[in-house]
Nucleic acid binder design. Structure first.
Length: 256
DNA sequence: CTGCCTTTTCCTGGTT
DNA sequence: AAACCAGGAAAAGGCA
């Protein structure tokens, strides 16, 4: 875990990405914990049951997160601040705008979105059958383990919980104000300093995520303190205030 | 089964 | 006094 964090922090995306990897190698038929049947999840059907144009802002965010989980995309590629839009706005984005916002994963995500829009499909197996020319295969490279997890996602797929790390949960909550409910607040957006406004609510929400109704802020904060050691968080000498460290990624504004 | 990692649980003691 | 913060220790769970 720490390894992947370190990599994503110190290597550029282009370095992480291997342009030679084929579509199939990355998304295809290898098991990799994602056998074909696993794509038939409730989440998949959710995303195809409602036309993207009718997705809410929250849905858009969830969809991106779901894709990161399901297809092992590196969330670090995506500028989430650019996707604080509803489904209609998402569908109205030009390909160029979309690529700008979604970074190196953009072509692949754009392709998935267009497939959902036009064919109502999102599964990888479907995508695979109608995959574009291999020039797009370079985007696969942003595939890595440890993508962010879908917050409050309708998905109950195994992969969601598995990749659910506390700091990513906190980060994602900060990045989606609608879902946040004032639980967390940026204190200094640029420096990654944030405050836990409602500690008990945060613990409860985290407990829900982990299906653990015994979670408390005391215990959650102990887990947060362990992040000081790994550089995910840095200590801030104020009550209920934390700061993202050099090994945390994906929280920066306008940063891909 | 093993080892590693993150998180949970519990605890003692200090601070606001 | 209640709510936090600091970490140690140990154990639970997930994962490769």
């Amino acid at each position: 875990m720490l390894d992947s964090v370190t990599h994503s922090t110190f290597l550029s995306n282009t370095m992480v990405c291997d342009p030679l990897m084929s579509w199939t190698e990355l998304f295809g038929t290898t098991e990799d914990g994602y056998p074909t049947c696993d794509h038939q999840t409730d989440s998949d059907s959710f995303w195809t049951s409602i036309h993207p144009e009718y997705w809410s802002k929250h849905n858009v965010c969830e969809w991106l997160q779901f894709c990161c989980d399901q297809y092992k995309l590196d969330a670090n590629c995506i500028s989430f601040s650019h996707f604080n839009i509803n489904g209609l706005q998402l569908c109205n984005m030009t390909q160029e705008e979309f690529l700008d916002a979604a970074g190196i994963c953009g072509e692949y995500l754009y392709f998935i979105l267009q497939n959902i829009r036009t064919h109502g499909i999102s599964f990888f197996t479907d995508v695979e059958e109608t995959k574009p020319t291999n020039k797009d295969s370079r985007d696969k490279a942003c595939v890595r383990a440890g993508g962010i997890n879908g917050q409050e996602c309708h998905s109950h797929g195994r992969t969601n919980l598995q990749s659910s790390h506390l700091w990513e949960f906190v980060r994602d909550l900060l990045l989606s104000p609608e879902e946040n409910g004032g639980i967390l607040e940026w204190e200094d957006r640029g420096q990654g300093i944030f405050r836990v406004v409602k500690s008990e609510a945060l613990a409860k929400m985290w407990g829900q995520r982990k299906k653990n109704d015994r979670m408390t802020y005391e215990k959650l904060s102990r887990a947060l303190r362990y992040y000081y050691k790994t550089g995910i968080l840095e200590r801030v000498d104020r009550r209920l205030v934390y700061k993202f460290g050099k090994n945390a990624h994906g929280w920066q504004e306008n940063k891909i």
